[in-house]
């Protein structure tokens, strides 16, 4: 695993990436880990020219991020987990050339205030975007998602998917705005947005086997946050420990 530390400056000991001020170019296909270890403002560009898997994480920070993924060719898989104090984040994903593809999976626990804007730009034909966000909003938190999929007229045969779900754990201010701007017919598009609590039936089923309400929530939150997330052991363990702490 190539590790990239995002501090006041970008630090990495990997020869598989090129760092040019705030632009990180991935030179080889493979797995990369990015961790934001300091609070602050970040304005980064990631240049993708092949099949790249990025695992991003950040814990207990105040972040103001405006990042861009430039996918010239190949497939970018992003798996990202946040458990921060405050986040304001704008993500731009440019699918620049024919066949470029992104699979973006984000999960977070929102404690106070977090705002996310995700812009996906289908700039050429047969580009594919699959955007999945899943959040747990703690009581009294504020969590907003705006997801904009933009399709250019020449992007025939493109496939777009947006799925966002927020599980609320009490009174909180949440919203999801899924937008798809599609000027052509030859596009396959799907979106789904859900805000709500865990299903009563699920809670009853687990409690009917002797599991307390608190432990039931722990099981459901862990399952929800970790499912379909390609996380290696250390991050996975960190998330499990976090859930155990929040629902102590």
């Amino acid at each position: 695993m190539n590790k990239i530390i995002i501090d006041k400056k970008i630090v990495s000991n990997s020869n598989d990436i090129k760092i040019d001020e705030n632009v990180i170019t991935f030179l080889k296909n493979g797995d990369y880990e990015i961790e934001y270890i300091a609070s602050g403002e970040y304005n980064l560009s990631f240049v993708i020219n092949g099949d790249i898997n990025i695992l991003e994480s950040s814990f207990d920070k105040e972040l103001n991020i405006n990042n861009r993924y430039i996918i010239n060719k190949g497939k970018l898989n992003v798996t990202k987990f946040y458990d921060n104090k405050v986040v304001k984040e704008v993500i731009n994903i440019d699918l620049c050339n024919k066949g470029a593809s992104v699979n973006y999976k984000f999960a977070n626990i929102c404690k106070t205030e977090e705002n996310y804007i995700i812009n996906i730009n289908h700039n050429d034909e047969k580009t594919v975007s699959d955007i999945n966000n899943k959040s747990v909003a703690l009581v009294n938190s504020s969590l907003k998602f705006v997801i904009n999929s933009n399709v250019l007229e020449k992007a025939n045969g493109s496939i777009l998917n947006q799925t966002t779900r927020i599980v609320t754990m009490g009174e909180c201010d949440t919203s999801i705005s899924p937008n798809m701007f599609i000027p052509i017919d030859d596009v396959e598009a799907r979106h789904g947005s859900v805000v709500g609590t865990f299903k009563d039936d699920q809670i009853f089923y687990l409690m009917s086997k002797g599991i307390s309400y608190k432990d039931t929530l722990k099981l459901l939150v862990k399952g929800y946050l970790l499912s379909n997330m390609l996380l290696y052991h250390e991050i996975r363990k960190k998330i499990i420990d976090l859930v155990d702490t929040y629902w102590r």
Binding site: D201, Y205, K209, I211, L219, K222, S227
Partner: peptide, 21 residues
Amino acid sequence: SPLEIDGVSNQDFLRTAMSSH
């Protein structure tokens, strides 16, 4: 109709239930 719960592993569920009992 036993419920399907995506993400919750059968093993974690069964072990938690046994431990609770």
